[in-house]
Simulated assay, not measured.
Amino acid sequence: MILTNAKIVLSNEVINGSLHINRGCIEAIDSGGVSLPGAVDCEGGYLMPGMVELHTDNMEKHFTPRPGVAWPGMQAFKVHDAQMISAGITTVFDAISVGDVVEGSERLNNLSRMADALHASRDRGLTRADHLLHLRCEVSHQDTLHNFRTLLESHPPQLVSIMDHSPGQRQFANIDKYRQYYQGKYKMSDSEMEAFIVRQSEASNLYSTDYRRAIADICLGLGIPLASHDDATLEHVTESLEHGMVIAEFPTTEVSAREAHRHGMAVLMGAPNVVRGGSHSGNVAAHSLASEGLLDVLSSDYYPASLLDAAFKLAADERNGYDLAAATRLVSQRPALAAGLEDRGEIAIGKRADLVWYEGLEDHAHIKHVWKDGGRVF
Rank of each mutant, 00 (worst) to 15 (best):
E194T: 04
Y182C: 06
I197L: 04
S166H: 05
A173Y: 12
S191G: 03
S201V: 09
S154P: 01
Q180C: 14
D176I: 06
D190H: 08
Q180A: 14
S191E: 13
G168F: 03
S189N: 02
G168N: 04
Q171G: 02
Q158W: 00
Q183L: 08
P157W: 02
H155E: 07
I175F: 01
A195G: 05
Q183C: 09
Q171M: 15
S201R: 12
S189H: 07
L159C: 01
Y186L: 14
K185W: 06
I162E: 02
Q183F: 08
E153F: 02
F196T: 00
P157C: 00
Y182Q: 08
I197M: 03
Y178G: 05
N174C: 06
R149G: 08
L151C: 12
K177C: 09
Q200K: 10
S201D: 13
D164L: 13
P157E: 05
F172P: 03
H165F: 09
Y181L: 01
Q183H: 04
A203I: 00
T150Y: 14
D164C: 13
E194P: 00
F196Q: 05
Q171S: 08
S189G: 05
G184W: 14
S154V: 14
F172L: 03
M193P: 02
G184L: 08
K185A: 11
E202L: 12
R170W: 07
K187C: 06
S189Y: 12
M193F: 10
F196K: 01
Y182L: 12
I162G: 01
M163W: 03
L151W: 01
E202S: 10
E192P: 07
P156N: 09
I197K: 04
Y186I: 06
H165D: 08
S161D: 15
N147G: 10
E194Y: 03
R170I: 05
E194H: 01
V160S: 00
N147R: 11
P156C: 02
Q171R: 15
P157M: 03
G168E: 08
E153W: 04
Q169L: 07
Q171T: 10
S204A: 06
P156S: 04
L159N: 05
M188D: 07
F172N: 10
F148V: 03
Y186E: 12
F196Y: 13
H155G: 04
S161M: 14
F172C: 02
L152N: 10
S154A: 14
I162D: 01
V160L: 00
H155F: 10
Y178H: 13
Q158H: 09
P156G: 03
S204G: 08
L152H: 06
A195N: 09
H155N: 09
Y186T: 01
G168Q: 06
F196N: 02
Q171W: 13
N174I: 03
R149N: 12
E202F: 07
A203K: 14
E153R: 07
